[in-house]
Design a protein around this nucleic acid. Structure first.
Length: 466
RNA sequence: GGCGCGGUAGCCAAGUGGUAAGGCAAAGGUCUGCAAAACCUUUAUUCGUCGGUUCAAUUCCGACCCGCGCCUCCA
């Protein structure tokens, strides 16, 4: 099945391929580094990771830009309060974000670009917008005049014609000509850090960094722009207004948005006490792989109910897949090749890919994997699984894990070495042969204390780390 | 109020105009020195409610109820 995505712009599922050569030019909204990212943020970032991997699985190359917003009102407020420079303050959370991404096995985009390294580009873009009469100044700030952009509202499917002038709006801070106009450049308030530019002292507005950095690195029309659904309005709508006013070309061909995450059936909020950062959960003993699995297992366009029970279920589901992989690698099989099973393996792998290509239906893709695992385990039990079937099974597992990335356990410091484990297993085998089961059980218990689980099988002993 | 998404078994969650994937949990069984792992069986006559279209609807249409998001910073 050809790859296809739901496009927020058209509100339809459309076949996808990049516009030029074989490279997907993609921009995704990254973190604002004013605090630790929470599990809802990572729902979106996990979706983007799955998206990347599926694009590559379809043979496309990637040029993916993600921004790091390292200047905004909250960052300035917090940095000033803590008497830190913007750089010192944001470095803490940027590093934490990168660490968290590593734990969740989220690939780095080809380019990770900080807003503050592009101030000159933004100033230049604002000047060009001004030259095109898209802007006006007020109290040292520069605003985008929405009435100069006829397509405003096309992404969020809102009709803004006519209902603006009389709208009740909060105008306490800035003077705007129209309620929907937004800041391109913000004049500093008392004591705030500011850049000295031809526009006057100040800092960029929220939306301009994305337009400028996307166009700078990827060109005037992106293949894909993605982010959380709450960014549709106003952030992405405003990006479109700026970018298309600047270039006269469509800003992005596809717009993909991830739905929200709920926690225990409720919205996540600090006051409800169900607000989790990744480090909260890891600190409570939940495996990053289980978190990744849970976040990835619900298709991105559906809201995801994140629960601690769900996390436990996810860990057990992963365990089942790892057990299968271990069995595949350690059992001995009769020579030969089971054609029927081979055909079912191929069908399962095909179903897996088709499901992912159908707007990243990860739930359906997982179903194909689990159905296959049951089938193959069953064939192993009955002896119908033959040596000639191993390669295709391993390949399917590899295909699965190239997307989901949950099969390899995370490494922990201070673990017993493989050689030590093998040595103790040999000792236990000798004890078993001598029918000294007490000693054998004692050795198993000792290994268990070290986090090693033994399984006696027809093919001999196999072991795994807890 | 406007725009958008959703309500499927104990929980999580796919899906289709023709009679309900998968995971977890629960119960029973097979296998086994023990322990695991694995497999088998059982668990939604029913898909928020009420109407309509149809030979047939969970799937299409309408109304209503409930939850969530955006409309102000927000993944």
């Amino acid at each position: 099945m050809a790859l296809r995505f739901y496009n927020t712009l058209s509100q339809q599922v459309e076949d996808f391929s990049p516009a030029r050569d074989n490279t997907v030019r993609m921009y995704t909204c990254g973190p604002t580094v004013y605090d630790f990212a929470h599990i809802g943020n990572f729902r979106t970032f996990t979706f983007i990771d799955i998206l990347r991997k599926c694009l590559r699985a379809n043979g496309f190359r990637l040029d993916h830009v993600m921004n790091v917003t390292d200047v905004d009102d909250k960052i300035i407020r917090n940095a000033v309060a803590q008497h830190k420079s913007l750089e010192d303050y944001t470095a803490i959370y940027k590093n934490a974000f990168l660490e968290d991404c590593g734990l969740l096995r989220l690939e780095s985009p080809e380019r990770l670009v900080p807003a503050t390294a592009h101030i000159d580009d933004m100033v230049e873009a604002i000047e060009r917008l001004g030259a095109g009469n898209h802007t006006y100044s007020s109290d040292g700030s520069v605003y985008f005049r929405i009435s100069t952009f006829p397509g405003y509202g096309k992404l969020s499917h809102n009709d803004f014609s006519g209902n603006l002038a009389g709208a009740r709006v909060d105008v306490d801070e800035y003077e705007k000509a129209d309620a929907r106009d937004f800041a391109l450049w913000k004049a500093p308030k008392e004591g705030e850090p500011a850049w000295q530019t031809p526009l006057g002292p100040g800092r960029p507005g929220w939306h301009i960094e994305c337009s400028v950095m996307a166009i700078k690195y990827l060109g005037e029309t992106l293949d894909i722009h993605a982010g959380g659904i709450d960014l549709v309005f106003p952030h992405h709508e405003n990006e479109i207004a700026q970018s298309e006013s600047l270039t006269g070309k469509p800003f992005s061909r596809f717009w993909l948005h991830a739905e929200f995450l709920m926690v225990e059936g409720q919205k996540m909020s600090k006051s409800l006490g169900n607000y989790y950062t990744l480090r909260d959960l890891v600190g409570r003993g939940y495996a990053p792989e289980a978190i990744r699995y849970l976040l990835a297992s619900v298709p991105y366009r559906k809201s995801l109910n994140f629960t601690l029970d769900g996390l436990k279920s996810a860990a057990i589901a992963i365990e089942r897949l790892r057990n299968f992989k271990l069995r595949l690698e350690t059992d001995r099989y009769q020579p030969g090749h089971n054609e029927q099973l081979a055909a079912r393996t191929a069908a399962a792998s095909q179903a897996f890919g088709d499901s992912l290509n159908d707007d990243l239906n990860t739930a359906e893709a997982l179903a194909a994997v689990f159905e296959y695992v049951r089938d193959a385990n069953s064939a192993m039990d009955s002896g119908e699984f033959r040596a000639g079937n191993v390669a295709a099974a391993a390949e399917f597992l590899g295909r699965f894990d190239s997307i989901f990335q949950v099969l390899e356990p995370g490494v922990q410091a201070g673990q017993i070495s493989d050689a030590q484990v093998e040595s103790l297993i040999a000792e236990r085998n000798a004890a078993k042969k001598a029918r000294n089961f007490a000693r054998a059980d004692q050795l198993r218990e000792e290994l268990l204390q070290q986090g090693i689980i033994l399984e006696d099988t027809k093919s001999g002993v196999r072991w795994k780390r807890k």
